[in-house]
Design a protein around this nucleic acid. Sequence first.
DNA 1: AAGACATGAAACTTGGAATGTTACGTAAGC
DNA 2: GCTTACGTAACATTCCAAGTTTCATGTCTT
Lengths: 166, 166
Amino acid sequence: MPRDLRMSRILHVLIHMDRHVERATSEQISKMISTNPVVVRRLMGGLRDRGIVTSEKGHGGGWKLSRPLTEVTLRDVYDAVGAPPLFNIGPHAEPSECLVEKAVDAQLDASLSEAEVRLLAQFSTISVESLARDFEDRFARMQQDGRGAPNTPNPHTGFHRLAGKS
Amino acid sequence: MPRDLRMSRILHVLIHMDRHVERATSEQISKMISTNPVVVRRLMGGLRDRGIVTSEKGHGGGWKLSRPLTEVTLRDVYDAVGAPPLFNIGPHAEPSECLVEKAVDAQLDASLSEAEVRLLAQFSTISVESLARDFEDRFARMQQDGRGAPNTPNPHTGFHRLAGKS
DNA sequence: AAGACATGAAACTTGGAATGTTACGTAAGC
DNA sequence: GCTTACGTAACATTCCAAGTTTCATGTCTT
């Protein structure tokens, strides 16, 4: 339903890099998230500027995590992709002359701002590592309970088989 | 910053109708919010379907409030405009084959869903009347404190001068 | 030094959603 | 019968994320 997929995509990439590959080129990463190398560079550029990943040119170059995912929060990722508008609804951008409109916009904005603060605060408390681990735990439990999910071994590039032996 | 202005516009219209005009045509309303009569009909159609306003055709027709704004919540308005996606960010629509991606999307969706439930719950507690009154109170206070805001008498169609004598 | 491999960045195209617009149909009042 | 107004379909416009093309820059290998 939503629109801006950048956060979702970056999280996807970060976890793959942590779990499966030490160093990855934009080309390789673009296959993970089914897109173009240039799009990957745009996304990763924000992460590099914030010290979450490093990039190296030339032969053997590519992207590497520069700190453990325990030290990267959802808030960091959100900021790294440019802190796009959280909400799809809201008041006008430019203020109006109309007092009623200004009143409505101010009140509506107050509700949304409060919700935004809360959500971003929650993002700050969630590390990418814990996000990945939550899932892996649940998946492992399913696995050992009566007949787990399919565990289809069909990844993008040959990686995968998450949450087996760690 | 945001995109979907429908809620903001409808609130604007509802308060104007309650405060200033008993009955208004799509033409008149369109001038309030600087748009087209057809756009107004689209917006108001949702309200009519939910019993918030009534419409009448022909001479002397137009739109009227069918219940007091004390009995219309922000949630009602949100639903009436089609309950558009609240968030601008989020995971993909179609599920992926990749387990990592599914994990990321599920976790991200969980955070967003929780925030959505909270925000909509809050919308349910706020009536359009109280939203308007909050502003009017604050405005009146500014007015009597040392020299209030300009109180510019320049509305859309000649209405206005909110929060004077009620 | 030459060539291959990567990132960096600018410029343009594409696609979807809200909005704006035009046109026509239907109902109500004069 | 004519004007007024809503109801609706169809199309145009605008905005932004995403996709794409192209070239420049830096780095490793031979």
